[in-house]
């Protein structure tokens, strides 16, 4: 109680005091305050990336990252220590330091500068090989439950998610049940894009006429940010989408809502959708034409050459 009084008093006086400050002092104070707040305001930033991991893939990537960081201390350490020490100790004005102008080679030293870096690289290579195979984006995640299949089409400047098993589709909104693995097949209806949900998994390119794959999962329910990181035109910066990891019930409810939306995604609807635009809100399609993903792929694969010719004749 006693502590509360002075606090409330300062709080009450602050606006008046601020107004009384001359402009420049105030600007300096604000700048200093901003600098002081930087660590506070800035800390949250890492939570938006893979260091704020919320799924098994990002978890493993994060621990690999920390392992590599620890090894790298041995790479940088000697250089960061020796450079300033040597430069300062052997400065011209230090007359006590040794001077050997014609010394330029030493076998043991050669060993010291070639062998330890080589050993570090060998050690890193082992981690790299194992990590790359363990975290191969194509590798299905180990889990009891069967994965949720989602087909992803990158468009300008939105993402289309088709749920072939459920017969629904959504735009700019990826929803799946937490705890269950998700298997994504990606392609692009336009230029190359890069699909990325920083807190869940690494990114993978989506390219027209080709399919790439990505496996991910979320530990528990949550809302994450997904994005395209490959510049693709004027709406690029807006091409973010919410990723919702729901409970199994929540996911079912979302599917039901999507089905009720009534709209059908067929080739015509897709053509309309794929026009360059930014969608203000996520939207859903209650039904999807069969094998639509395949048809989208066929628009741009090599086989289209024949189709193109036929159409011309």
């Amino acid at each position: 109680m006693t502590g509360a009084r002075p606090m409330s008093r300062t709080a009450g006086r602050r606006p008046a005091a601020a107004a009384a400050w001359p402009g420049r002092t105030r600007a300096v104070a604000v700048a200093l305050g901003a600098l002081g707040l930087l660590p506070l305001g800035g800390c949250g930033v890492l939570d938006h990336g893979f260091l704020g991991a919320a799924g098994p893939v990002a978890d493993e990537t994060r621990s690999l990252f920390y392992t590599v960081c620890v090894i790298l201390i041995f790479v940088a350490g000697p250089v960061l220590v020796l450079t300033p020490i040597f430069a300062w100790h052997y400065r011209l004005s230090n007359t006590k330091s040794a001077y050997r102008p014609q010394w330029g080679f030493n076998w043991p030293l050669e060993g010291f500068i070639w062998i330890p870096p080589a050993i570090i690289v060998v050690v890193l290579a082992v981690f790299l090989w194992r990590g790359t195979h363990r975290l191969d984006p194509y590798k299905p995640l180990a889990a009891d439950a069967s994965p949720v299949e989602v087909q992803v089409v990158a468009l300008d400047w939105k993402w289309l998610f088709i749920y072939p098993e459920e017969g629904v589709a959504s735009v700019d909104e990826l929803v799946f049940p937490a705890g269950r693995p998700v298997h994504l097949s990606l392609t692009s209806g336009t230029v190359m894009q890069s699909f990325f949900i920083p807190q869940l998994a690494g990114q993978i390119y989506a390219m027209a006429g080709m399919t790439t794959q990505l496996n991910l999962a979320a530990h528990k329910s949550g809302r994450f940010r997904g994005e395209n990181t490959q510049f693709n035109g004027m709406g690029f910066q807006n091409q973010k989408f919410p990723v919702l990891a729901e409970s199994e019930d929540g996911y079912r409810a979302w599917l039901a809502r999507a089905k009720r939306s009534g709209k059908t995604l067929d080739m015509d609807a897709y053509k309309t959708l794929s026009a360059r635009s930014v969608q203000a809100q996520p939207s859903q399609f209650g039904s999807v034409a069969p094998k639509l993903f395949k048809s989208i792929l066929a628009l741009d694969d090599a086989g289209a050459h024949a189709a193109h010719k036929e159409a011309k004749q």
Binding site: G49, L64, F127
Partner: peptide, 19 residues
């Protein structure tokens, strides 16, 4: 060089590439 080695590790590259 340190960040270069980080980027050389493919799984780490997956999460910082294009950023």
């Amino acid at each position: 060089g340190l960040s270069g080695i980080m980027l050389a590790v493919p799984p780490i590259d997956y999460v910082v590439h294009n950023t």
